[in-house]
Amino acid sequence: MDVLNYKNIVKLVLLDKYKILIVFLIFAAVSVFYALSLPNIYTSRIVVSSTINEGGKLSGSLGGLASMAGISLGGGEMSPEVVKESLVSNSFLGNFVKENNLGSILFAAKSFDPSTKKFIFDESIYDSKLSEWTRKVKYPQDVIPAIDELAKKLKESLVVGYDRKTKLITVTLSSYSPDFAKETLTLLISDFNMFMKNKEKEEAELTIRYLKDKLNREQVSEIRLALQQLLEDQLKKLALAETKTEYALKVIDNPLRASQKSSPRRSIICLAITLFGTTFFALLLLTFRIARLER
């Protein structure tokens, strides 16, 4: 076979057609077995909008009053993008996982039993019977995951997107349990609103104490008036934080319990493994045949 063209290559491949067929069937069986061994994953979705006033910084008049009084109250602008980044910050997500005892599920759950509605854990990571961590780690990690580890693990199944046109934030969470995904998403937004509310309350309370102290020591009437107006503005902020439930994020579309799995796509997995394995084996046989012909 002096000329190696398309027809000759086909002829060489057909010489091993039975071997290729057997390997095809083996890869098909393996791929089906592998695909069926993968647990179903369900995804829940929630859509929210930022309710924090983008004009959170002092208005021109109040900013002038603050300058007159010789103080700086900060309160920079908090855009929806900043709110989104606060939502996915390691400090918030890590503490969220820790406070709600979600670490064992995120780290050690390997599947979910619909009949008992319980997660099945990898006992080499977490002993569900004793409720103890058993994972093996290297320094400086500890057996119990740290805040940054908890946040990183949650981010593996959490996707947060922001639409610049609609200014809406979309959050999705994937889990072996559709109920867990839905409930955790609801809890995440609720806890974030409380987190931002408490943060704003602390800042407002500190500012109010500072303004009251400065007001008690100030003698100039113009500056006293400026301080009183600034104090009134901070009291309004505090009242808003105390009374507003959806302080940072307002729910536009509540999360629903997923009725269908989002992954794995078993048909594609089977097709990819079978085609890749068979093609690789066929090319390997073809290479050997060509090598023999060239000797």
Rank of each mutant, 00 (worst) to 15 (best):
I223S: 07
R265G: 08
E203Y: 11
S262Y: 06
Q229W: 12
L240Y: 15
L256S: 14
K250I: 03
S263V: 00
A226D: 07
R209V: 07
S263L: 01
A239E: 15
R209Q: 14
N193R: 03
A204S: 14
R257V: 14
K261I: 01
S259L: 12
V220N: 15
A226V: 00
Q260E: 15
S175N: 11
K237D: 10
K182W: 08
S177G: 01
S259T: 14
E242S: 13
E183H: 09
Q260N: 13
Y210W: 07
I273M: 10
I208S: 01
L231T: 02
F180K: 04
K244A: 09
A181P: 03
E246W: 14
L227A: 02
I273H: 07
D213C: 02
K236T: 04
T186R: 12
K214C: 00
Q229M: 09
E242H: 11
A226M: 08
D213K: 13
F195L: 00
D179P: 00
K212I: 09
D179C: 05
L215T: 08
E218I: 05
E222R: 10
R224M: 02
T184H: 08
K250Y: 12
L238T: 00
P255C: 00
I208D: 06
E246C: 08
T243Q: 11
A181K: 05
E242Y: 13
T243P: 11
T278Q: 04
L271D: 06
L230W: 04
S190P: 04
A226N: 06
R224W: 02
K250T: 07
I252M: 02
A258L: 06
R224H: 04
A248L: 07
R217D: 09
T274L: 02
T184R: 01
D179E: 14
L256T: 10
V220A: 05
F195S: 04
L235S: 01
R217L: 08
A204F: 03
L185I: 07
L215K: 08
S267T: 14
Q219D: 14
E218V: 02
F276Y: 09
A226K: 06
S177H: 03
K197N: 06
E222D: 15
K199H: 10
T274Q: 05
